[in-house]
Design a protein around this nucleic acid. Sequence first.
DNA 1: CTAGAACTTGAAGTTAACTTTAAGTCAAGG
DNA 2: CCTTGACTTAAAGTTAACTTCAAGTTCTAG
Lengths: 155, 155
Amino acid sequence: MVYTVGEMAKLLGVAASTLRYYDKEGLLPFVERSSGGIRMFRESDIEWLQVIGCMKKAGMSIKDIRQYIEMALQGDDTIDLRLAMFRRQQEVLKQQMAELQHTMEMVDYKCWYYETAKEAGTVDAPQKMELAEVPERFRKIRQELRTAPGTATTI
Amino acid sequence: MVYTVGEMAKLLGVAASTLRYYDKEGLLPFVERSSGGIRMFRESDIEWLQVIGCMKKAGMSIKDIRQYIEMALQGDDTIDLRLAMFRRQQEVLKQQMAELQHTMEMVDYKCWYYETAKEAGTVDAPQKMELAEVPERFRKIRQELRTAPGTATTI
DNA sequence: CTAGAACTTGAAGTTAACTTTAAGTCAAGG
DNA sequence: CCTTGACTTAAAGTTAACTTCAAGTTCTAG
């Protein structure tokens, strides 16, 4: 089974123009063409496309992804390089996860903040509350929000 | 203690031009000016800036953030709206977290894939391995990578 | 009082990742 | 054979979020 660019785009849930753009940027050198020049995506190309999609979600640029594709096409000589690349990406993702966790704590705090404000009818309630009255799990983030990053708050 | 735009930028670890841009976009209506027109950031403005930073990390656009700032300046009438906004953002973050988790699984799989390839000296080793030989925790993601999204693989 | 660093603004420039347009080509059904 | 819809390319346009530039102003230290 082979697919045209439009069919593959539909299958993956992206725009056909995106796949053409990726091709132009050298991300799809493995896609073959018909005698008339039309792209023929093979079933096995789906894996390439899924990996590209995941690398994009991991925050990698088109340029970085092309490097990976080029390495992969070079064959077994680049296994070490590719392994190193994914190991580095693992670290990047861990970092992203920690940041996301932190952002979530802030949003949780803000939800509590506005729930408290709603009950009292004014933001003065949470805003002027003593730290000791604030639920324990929000104390750290509250302190953090009120000071510049990297500013130690311990006296 | 008040800060100029350059001092505040340094404190927060961003470019001064970024703060000026945010101001131009209406994100910093609370920042006062000296008689000569120079921005004077107050200690308490740090909290606003931290919240803006967190909202950005959560993937919100400048425009969305401005809406929040405008609501906050309107006072207690918009508490409900602001609460709804952060609740929605909570959902968005949960979704992001799930995606990041999934991306991580893919990268973990790829690390295993290239470690196995490295040992064997060829990517054929992991590529052509039977599903049963693949470590259990990578089977699902391997299947997923090899098929289009939403394609059920259970026969 | 003045030099110079840091501030001000508006406008233009940058970058990444697409998307759209225009002009033309291919392929399948009738 | 011919229509029609999907394909092709190159080139231009879009968008968000900044960054840089140019010309002028303010503040601080000597």
